[in-house]
């Protein structure tokens, strides 16, 4: 009989954990669970405790802000193979943005408290986890900086407007 894959084995197939030590992935699997979100459903909301972050398997997610009195502002979109949420890493462990499903989304959820406890109890594991997550955080920081640079703005902010 074919044995169902362990959560650790499933995590090992996700791009984020490819090449990660198999024993560590199995250990991490103890904090992971499967999740499904329908279109428009929130994975998490801004200012709520950052209890669980997600590794996207299928579907797209928008990181956005609810601009009171205006429509929602999407800051960044996240796609299969990527991770949603970094605020679980550092105090005060609260989400800064909303994360909303842009379609049917399947994801692995990682219980942040469980993971932090494992990292504290096993510093080698914790170091490996942080080495895996730090580049992702750095990548997000660079992406945000690039967006802020407004690279494609006309040399003169509002170039001459032309009559059609």
């Amino acid at each position: 009989m074919v044995q169902p894959k362990t959560m650790g084995a499933l995590l090992a197939e996700h791009p984020i954990f490819q090449g990660f030590d198999p024993e560590a992935t199995e250990f991490l699997g103890g904090c992971a669970s499967n999740h499904h979100f329908a279109f428009d459903e929130f994975l998490f909301r801004a200012d709520q405790p950052a209890e669980r972050f997600y590794l996207i398997r299928t579907g797209d997610v928008a990181l956005e802000l609810d601009m009171t009195g205006r429509k929602r502002l999407v800051i960044h979109t996240i796609h299969p193979g990527q991770i949603v949420g970094a605020s679980w890493l550092l105090p005060p462990y609260r989400w800064r943005f909303d994360a909303r499903a842009l379609g049917d989304v399947r994801a692995f959820g990682i219980d942040a408290t469980c993971l932090r406890n494992k990292c504290d109890a096993n510093p080698d594991f914790g170091y490996a986890v942080f080495k895996r997550f730090l580049p992702l955080v750095a990548e997000r920081l660079l992406a945000t900086r690039m967006q802020l640079l407004d690279l494609y703005a006309p040399p003169v902010e509002v170039g001459a407007k032309l009559q059609a």
């Binding site: 791009p15 999407v74 960044h76 979109t77 796609h79 990527q82 990548e139 967006q147």
Partner: peptide, 23 residues
């Protein structure tokens, strides 16, 4: 696109994001 607006349903982020995804 770097900046979202209401009528846009596509990806939001810098163009380098697309390079990472097209593995």
């Amino acid at each position: 696109v770097d900046r979202h607006s209401d009528e846009w349903a596509g990806p939001v982020g810098p163009v380098t994001e697309l390079i990472g995804r097209h593995a």
